[in-house]
Design a protein around this nucleic acid. Structure first.
Lengths: 143, 143
DNA sequence: TTTAAATTATGACAAAAATCATATTTAGGA
DNA sequence: TCCTAAATATGATTTTTGTCATAATTTAAA
C-alpha cells in the first residue's frame, strides 16, 4: 500500500505529534531510535517534510524537529502525498489511464468505494486527533 | 497498492480468462501486445504463475498459455499472493509486527475494516466471474 | 525422425528505492 | 566572537524491482 519511506515518515511524524512541541524539539537520533528506522535515511525524509512544511525544524544548538500548532492540523494524507506522491493512492488498481465508474476496470467495483472511505478517513483526522488517541492509550506506536 | 509485476500478471490472466481456452492457447506475444506489457518480462511472470498452477501452458508447436476450467475457479487474490506474496496485502499499514484490534496502530481503525472488505471481494469473484463481466461489457481491459 | 514453434531456465543489465557517509550551513551559548 | 550541536545538501553505495537476451527443452506436424 505505502512505500517504506512513507511508513517511516508517518511513524516519525506521529512520534513528533506525541512527544514534541515548539518548546521541546527532538533530535534526529531520538526520533529514529524509538521508532526503529535507519537514522540517516529518516533524516532525509524529515528534511523533505520540513521543506514541504509538513513539520518544523530548527538548525543548530537546541535545534531539532517538532510540530507547530499549525502542523498539528495536518493529516496522514498530507504526509503520503509528499513522500509517495498523490498518484500512488489515487490511481486505478491496475494503473489504467481512464478507469472510472463509467469505464471501470475489472477490479474497480471490488475496491473503489472502500478505497474512497479509507482516503476520507486519512483526511478526516488531524495529527492532533491521532496524537490524543495515542496518548489516551487507545492506539500504539511500537516497532 | 500492488507492484507493477502484480498489475501485469492480473491483466494477463484476465486477458487469458476472456480469450483463451484449452482448445485455444495463446502465445506470449499475443498476450503482451494487447495489454501493453513488456513481453520478456511478462513471460517470466507467466512462467511463475504456471509453476504455481494458477494458469496452464504447453510448450512446443501449437503451445501457449491458457486457463483450464479448474484455473478459472481461481480468484484475484491467488494471483497477488503468488507475485507479491501474502504479506503485502495482509500486513499492517505501518508494518507493525503485532497490530490488531486489541493493539491497534494509529491507522488501524482508519482502514482495517475497509481493507478486509476489499480482500473479501478479491476472494469472492472467480476469474470466470470476472471474464463474464468483461465479456458482457460491464468492465473493460484496455491500457 | 527431423524441423519449427513454443515455453522454460538462466543470467546479464537498467532503473528505482532504500541506505549510508560526509561536508556545509546555521543557531545558541560561553 | 568563537565553538559546538544541530539540520541541510549532496552524492555514493546497496538492494530490490523491472527489463532484456539467449540457450535449452519440449511438442506437434511434415
Amino acid at each position: 500500500m505505502f512505500s517504506n519511506s512513507t511508513k517511516y515518515a508517518i511513524k516519525a511524524v506521529l512520534y513528533l505529534a506525541v512527544h514534541s512541541s515548539e518548546q521541546h524539539k527532538i533530535v534526529i537520533n531520538d526520533i529514529a531510535e524509538p521508532i526503529n528506522v535507519p537514522k540517516a535515511y529518516l533524516a532525509k525524509l524529515l528534511q523533505e517534510l520540513s521543506r514541504q512544511s509538513i513539520i518544523s525544524s530548527t538548525k543548530g544548538l537546541k535545534g531539532g524537529f517538532y510540530l507547530s500548532n499549525k502542523d498539528r492540523e495536518r493529516n496522514i494524507k498530507d504526509i503520503i502525498d509528499v513522500i509517495d506522491g498523490e498518484d500512488r493512492l489515487n490511481s486505478c488498481l491496475l494503473s489504467l489511464k481512464d478507469c472510472d465508474s463509467k469505464n471501470p476496470c475489472s477490479l474497480h467495483h471490488l475496491a473503489y468505494s472502500q478505497k474512497q472511505i479509507i482516503l476520507d478517513n486519512f483526511k478526516s483526522k488531524s495529527l492532533n486527533d491521532l496524537a490524543m488517541h495515542l496518548k489516551s492509550g487507545k492506539s500504539v506506536l511500537p516497532l
